[in-house]
Design a protein around this nucleic acid. Sequence first.
RNA 1: GAAGAGAUGGCUGAGUGGUUGAAAGCAUCGGUUUCGAAAACCGACAUAGACGCAAAUCUAUCGUGAGUUCAAAUCUCACUCUCUUCGCCA
Length: 429
Amino acid sequence: MLDIKFVRENPEIVKDNIKKKFQEHKLELVDKVIELDKQNRETKQKGDELRQQRNALSSQIGTLMQSGKKEEAENIKTQVNIINDELIATEENEKKLAEEIKLIMMKIPNIIHESVPIGKDDSENVEVKRFGEPIVPEYDIPYHTEIMESFDGIDLDSARRVAGNGFYYLMGDIARLESAVLSYARDFMIGKGFTYCIPPFMIRSDVVTGVMSFEEMDAMMYKIEGEDLYLIGTSEHSMIGKFKDQILAKDKLPYNMTSFSPCFRKEKGAHGIEERGVYRIHQFEKQEMIVVCEPKDSYDWYNKMWSYTVELFRSLDIPVRTLECCSGDLADLKSKSVDVEAWSPRQKKYFEVGSCSNLTDAQSRRLGIRVKADDGNYYAHTLNNTVAAPPRMLISLLENNYNMDGSVNIPKVLQPYMGGLEKIEKKNK
RNA sequence: GAAGAGAUGGCUGAGUGGUUGAAAGCAUCGGUUUCGAAAACCGACAUAGACGCAAAUCUAUCGUGAGUUCAAAUCUCACUCUCUUCGCCA
């Protein structure tokens, strides 16, 4: 969400930004919201004047009543009643205008960073850099669920019976590997100075609408029946919600946190063949990183954050690349975003395992996350990035460490979390 | 889950219908004093919005939302949260 003042004063910048994002249908919203804002301020002004009159007359009544001049007081009361009638209509108008403005402001996208490449959709995202050699072995690599099944590590059939499609039972070494990845990722981030945090896995609707759009909410969030609670789609939701309506002390910034949570997603809509297995599911676990910082520092953090994910994957010997999100593919709240993609030697291409975003002050304005300053408070900047989402990470881990005999090597750094196990062997059945 | 008590500015805390945006204290900042500091004294000290070069002014906000009233921190209702007691439970 942009500052209405900024929109009022820089309509051309806002419109250019909308064009860069190929959302021409939203261009009209800019002039519309400026007009509504004008009306709103006029209406507010009128309301303020009426309220002023009422307040002045009311205090007169007080004085008159005390000195026992009942008749005069009654006279003024009727005057106030006339003002109040007018005020009711004005206040209704104020409310209506404020709602309309907010609705439009939520649709106007955040100003993208000047470095963001211009493009229509994800096909125009730009590869920035590759880390590690993408190796394709001379032998075939099976589909990740097949590898897991060969270790008796997954039971999708039972999961379907128990919870339906989009859930899994992980078992044995695979389940342990998932935990190992999470623990390793957690410790990795603690080593980078981040504070480990386990947040609530459910949040109230006011937090939900603060952190995402209605469309996203409908497509992602599970609601708890009979309660004003939703299952989080990512720990970012409860982690950023933690700061809702807070005025933060300057010397407490930055808040850099790494949080663990299960993530619940409806995943409305159809998906392709490559999204079978554990690639896209209704429930998965994730280690996340969240930063709330001074506006001037947000791009430093942005660069640090994605590079931490790259470093983590490289420490597991998984080749990765970074893919810059182009203007058209960038979510409205984001100023800049980069995907970290891991190499899949089976598909012979990279696939998304993490996403790092700087939302600048768009999210904090929406949620009221401010920084206390002597000369007026201002909005903090918020960023989020995936450290590791184990189900997807397992895919890349299994594929990149798969041996011809069907065994999978455990990367050195994970071995302590696996009780020293160096290799997962195929179960002969 | 049941009953009771409560929610006021950065903090403590007064305030039960009418110059109360809110006493007092603490903290913080500026000044006087001092060689310097402490103490003392004087002063400043919420947020958001409108208008304006600025100063000033006006409006809203005492957990949230609604209601009663000419007028609400103060009365009514709902919700949220906190505390106490009981119950239940990892």
